[in-house]
Amino acid sequence: MSWLIKSSIGRKLIQSISGLFLILFLLFHLSMNVVLIFSHETYDFLANEILGANWWAIVGTLVLGLGVVVHIIYAVILTLQNWIARGRNRYASKSKTQVAWSSKNMFVLGVFIVLFLFIHMYQMWYQMQFKDLFGIEGVRHDGAQLVVDVLSQTWVLIAYVVAFIALWFHLNHGFWSALHTVGWNNDIWMKRLKRLGYFVSTLIVLGFIVVAFAVYLGYTNLLV
């Protein structure tokens, strides 16, 4: 299986599969967020009892972390190789080839998202699962309240929304591109996949934004 890392298509397969896995995670994450709008209690129950410091949640976190790390490492490798493949001399004229903006800027978008992740993880995950696992003081078991606390600050909301938009662009290209790379595409499916990618990325990002705003404006825990 050394071809996976040695061949260009193998490396891209790794990037695609890890990307698709992360999209699945985002969908799961979104459903958790939606819960927040309806019931803080359920949210906390899910966060503490179902996830929390259980072994399965730890495994899940590790797998997820691995996915993220692999995705980032391969993004760096592929980008570096591609940069070298372009040659030492660059074009003097700017490319006028009409292509989707996001497709040319996946790495930049990715870097942006990673920066956001640092803030996000510190604000949420570190306070909950991490502190819990390593016995650090100040573990928050009231996840719902934590989210409300964090997201009621205006700068946080703005940072989140900006990151979500970057995520939308990243996913909009990433979704169909990943399926294209695993070979699941042809002339007919090209349009469908692009539309589906548009739908999925919009669903995820719009979901995140709506929840973020709802929290900011205080529309949470509505069923209580």
Binding site: S8, K12, L78, S95, A100, S103, T181, N186
Partner: peptide, 25 residues
């Protein structure tokens, strides 16, 4: 030493013979 394809589709746009990137899939 050719690079890794990232599916930007620029090749297809500039191809004088309209070769589709479906072929890449």
């Amino acid at each position: 030493g050719f690079g890794n394809c990232t599916n930007t589709g620029a090749c297809e746009v500039e191809c004088p013979k309209n070769i589709s990137i479906s072929n890449i899939a």
